[in-house]
Amino acid sequence: MKLDIRHIAKLARLEISEQEEQQLARDIDAILQMAGRLPENAGAQTGLEADRPAPLRRDICTPSASREALLANAPELRDGYLVVPKTV
C-alpha cells in the first residue's frame, strides 16, 4: 500500500506541515524499504507461549491512588471534572 502521510497523520491525530510531510515521507519510506526486504514467510506465527503462562491475580479490591491525586495532573478541572472544548 502506498504511503499517504496526510492520511496516516490524520489517523494518528497529528498535524504536519507541508515541509514536514516531504521529509517524513522520505524518512518513513526508507524504513519501509528496509522492512520490505524481510522474508515473506519466516514460519508460522505462534501465539502465547505454553511454557510461559501469564499468572492471573485474584479479583480483589485493593487501595489505589486517590481521585484527587490522579486528577492533579489534569490540564483543566472544574468541580473535580475534566474540562474539554465544547463538543455539541
Binding site: M1, L3, I5, I8, A9, L11, A12, L14, I16, L24, D27, I28, I31, L32, A35
Partner: peptide, 16 residues
C-alpha cells in the same frame, strides 16, 4: 516521536 507514531500507525493500518 512523531516519525515513529506515523510509521507505527501506517504498519497497523488497513492494507499494511
Amino acid at each position: 516521536v512523531k516519525r515513529r507514531i506515523l510509521l507505527g500507525t501506517f504498519v497497523l493500518s488497513a492494507g499494511s
